[in-house]
Design a protein around this nucleic acid. Structure first.
Lengths: 348, 348
DNA sequence: CTGAAAGCGCTTACAG
DNA sequence: CTGAAAGCGCTTACAG
């Protein structure tokens, strides 16, 4: 199948390549009739632009913006996202894509809003962002919509938005994986405690999906072990956690394993370490530094991880494909969950 | 930092761009003195060719050859490799890379040799292959060396070859991961049996590395659980396996977990299923269809997997980078091992 | 041994 | 409203 060039279209339509180009790029100044003719022929011939030639000639730079929580040594998860983006940009090197990062402080609404303003001002061709703060994110989506800037969500999904795509964790499967690991390692006569630490109810969709997955595993397995004992701890403060955990462990003497449904697993790890409860199985989510530290100490047994680098890398590639060829990606793309223990954590 | 063009080099050297091009591509017909001058300037200016322009102008196709065992429904691992290669080629789409696949029947030396001959005749610019059959592969390397065709190993490594790179599993870490999973799930008073099924001693390097990793875990943990009971089963025939396993389980009544150091895990799974030994923990390697079937049945608890798609995808990218920019990749690149159980197997 | 010209497929002014 | 020309950075003949 030979490549179709604008020259081929031009010849068939009896016009010049300049006209074809104007039609293809909606640059106007073309008679309606000519326009129709060119479009029809382009479609018939399955014209696909040669993006190599485009890149060479246009020197068009694609400026993307990425709005993410600030990572750090204590938050490897959000550290990894920019890395994944950089890597993807690098693979697109010959095509002049650049990404400008806008980092906001987690849980800081004012900062988030400030950064969204900066992005609107920066006026990028596309935006990749983590809509963690719901209300503010919806406003941002509206702003982007009116400016006709396409955006892709990573990590968190918001319903009823015009996002081009969402790329994130399969939280439900993550819950099932956590359940299976506990089930495998825990004596049959022991109980499981589920701890939900959701300070400001952020990411509660994730937590819910995970817990649903967790339950479904035991339902499917016909085991009555699932959600019998659950505790909500609204604060991750050491003292608060201790009070709540002390009381629950006092009234439930048979608990052999704990699942923490959020990234705050390290808080419970610290508690278990302090109380010298080393035989208790502890499973949680996300490869934050605090979590992996406790994993290496042997206090956390497993972490269920996503692949942040691949996630955001995909976002960049999808955005690039959309911008260059108007290829619409699938609306939701779930990343596989990974089982991490002390032996394979360093490979990530 | 502005892009340096051959025109810039030409101007500085006081020659034409044609001459610069001849120097850069070693196409001869250049005075030694001119050559030196141009090379010096190119180096000084950190010249990097614009691969977009190269691709557009040269229409040079890179023909790669991939020599792999034939995959199939019963061998998902080798099925995945071509897929990974296709995917990588696709990402390189605008650059005219194509890969011609040569599949050989596993363990069939004559077929392997026949396919290497075909490849030599095909005369590709680069070869990606799995040197599973050692003697024959060494011969093939020699052939490629004399024809000056670069090659990258995947899956298996051969010492003292001129391969551009090796991309494969971290077998030692794989062994440690297997050990940690068994240690986590097995009662402290139970024993572990290690089964080495190595019919024709293929891949024995892998098996050895895995077993070393396995042992090291228990050594590090200060546990005396490691390699106490080991059995070698030279044949994967059902009857042979049964005889050997019967005898070993009869003399060792306390075995609670079995590790199979190779992809033949399903053979032991069949045995356990047949004998209705469902409480025995079974851990093995590789996501072959037969293995994943037993994983889904709950007879195999964990499989330690590699990422075949990423592995061979990387091989393609490294080869492409080498061919276009002479970038030499690192000699060995190990892929992370993955923990697969019934809950996350379908995500792969 | 070296240079000047044509061309890859596309975009960007410019002339009419 | 439309066409012809120049140019992106490189490679490929061809002329000398």
């Amino acid at each position: 199948m030979k490549q179709v060039r604008i020259k081929d279209i031009a010849e068939k339509a009896g016009v010049s390549i300049g006209t074809v180009d104007r039609v293809l790029h909606n640059r106007g100044e073309v008679a309606a009739e000519t326009r129709e003719k060119v479009l029809t022929i382009a479609r018939e011939m399955h014209y696909q632009p040669n993006i190599v030639a485009q890149a060479l000639t246009s020197k068009k730079q694609y400026h993307l913006a990425a709005l993410l929580p600030r990572g750090g040594q204590d938050n490897v998860y959000w550290m990894a996202h920019p890395q994944g983006i950089e890597k993807a940009v690098n693979e697109l090197r010959p095509f002049f894509v650049d990404v400008h990062f806008f980092f906001f402080e987690l849980h800081n609404e004012a900062d988030f809003i400030a950064k969204t303003r900066e992005i609107i001002e920066y006026n990028p061709e596309g935006v990749i962002f983590a809509p963690i703060l719901k209300k503010e994110s919806i406003q941002f989506c509206a702003d982007l919509d009116t400016k006709n800037i396409p955006y892709i969500f990573i990590d968190t999904f918001i319903e009823d938005s015009n996002c081009l795509s969402f790329i994130g964790e399969d939280a439900y499967q993550g819950g099932r994986v956590a359940a299976s690991l506990i089930d495998y390692g825990l004596d049959a006569d022991k109980d499981i405690l589920i701890v939900n630490i959701a300070k400001d109810l952020e990411n509660t969709q994730h937590l819910n999906r995970r817990n649903q997955g967790f339950m479904s595993y035991f339902l499917d397995a016909g085991k009555n072990r699932g959600m019998k004992i659950t505790v909500e701890i609204p604060s991750a403060e050491r003292a608060d956690v201790e009070v709540r955990m002390d009381s629950i462990l006092n009234t439930n003497k048979n608990i052999g394993a704990i699942l923490v449904s959020s990234a705050k697993t390290h808080v419970i790890a610290r508690y278990l370490e302090h109380k010298k409860l080393k035989d208790t199985i502890l499973v949680g989510y996300e490869l934050t530094r605090k979590n992996t530290d406790y994993l290496k100490k042997g206090i956390i047994n497993f972490l269920i991880g996503q692949k942040p680098m691949e996630q955001s890398g995909k976002a960049v590639k999808r955005m690039f494909e959309f911008l260059t060829t108007r290829q619409i990606p699938s609306k939701k793309e779930f990343q596989p969950v990974e089982i991490i223990n002390v032996e394979n954590v360093d490979l990530f």
